[in-house]
Amino acid sequence: MANYTHGHHESVLRSHSNRTIANSAEYLRPHLNADARLLDVGAGPGTITVEFAQHVAQVTATEIGPAELALSQKLAAESGAANIDFSIEDVHALSFADNSFDIVHTHQVLQHVADPVQALREMRRVTKPGGIVAARDADYAGFVWFPLLPELDEWLRLYRAAARANGGEPDAGRRLLSWARAAGFEDVTATASTWCYATPEERAWWGGMWADRILESALARQLVDSKMATGADLQRISTAWRAWADDGDGWYLLPHGEIIARA
Rank of each mutant, 00 (worst) to 15 (best):
A183V: 09
A245H: 07
S238Q: 03
R203M: 07
L32K: 11
A183P: 07
Q118C: 06
H256N: 10
Q54Y: 03
D233Q: 00
A163T: 14
W244M: 00
A114H: 12
L71Y: 09
A61F: 09
E202R: 06
G46E: 04
S17R: 13
W244R: 01
A57D: 13
T194E: 08
E258R: 05
H105M: 00
E89L: 03
R164W: 08
R174H: 02
A81L: 01
G248M: 02
S100Q: 10
A165L: 08
A243S: 12
A165M: 09
N99H: 15
W251I: 02
R164M: 12
V41C: 11
Y252Q: 08
S95N: 09
Q58F: 12
M209K: 08
D139G: 12
W155F: 15
R175S: 12
H9Y: 12
P170Y: 03
A135K: 04
S79W: 08
T106L: 15
L219K: 00
A61G: 02
S11H: 10
E63Y: 07
S193T: 15
E186L: 10
A172L: 01
P45M: 07
D98T: 14
A165Y: 08
S178Y: 04
R174V: 11
Q235D: 15
A34W: 03
R262F: 07
A81M: 12
R136T: 15
A232L: 14
G184Q: 07
D247I: 03
W244T: 01
T239P: 00
V104Q: 01
T230E: 00
V41M: 11
F96C: 02
E51W: 09
L223H: 03
E186P: 00
T230W: 04
H112L: 10
V41R: 02
E186M: 13
P255S: 10
V113A: 08
N99K: 14
A218Q: 10
Q108H: 08
R213Q: 07
G207P: 03
D85F: 03
A97G: 10
Q235F: 02
S15N: 12
A204M: 05
R157W: 08
A76G: 13
E122C: 13
G130I: 11
T49R: 02
P66H: 10
E202N: 00
D90N: 15
V109P: 05
E186H: 14
T127R: 03
V144E: 08
R175P: 01
E169R: 02
R236L: 14
K74Y: 12
L177F: 10
G142N: 11
L28I: 14
A218T: 07
G207K: 03
T194K: 08
V56P: 06
Q222P: 00
R221G: 10
P129L: 13
R160D: 11
V59G: 11
H107C: 06
I21K: 02
A182V: 07
G7Y: 01
T49E: 06
L253Q: 05
A134T: 09
F146D: 11
A2K: 04
P116K: 06
G207Y: 05
P150T: 12
A220E: 01
N18W: 15
E63Q: 13
G208H: 01
D40Y: 12
P129D: 09
L110W: 05
D249F: 13
D225G: 09
A93P: 05
T5R: 04
R19Q: 07
I260E: 00
L152C: 03
A2W: 08
G131K: 04
A119C: 03
P147T: 11
L39R: 06
P170T: 06
P200H: 01
S17L: 08
A180W: 09
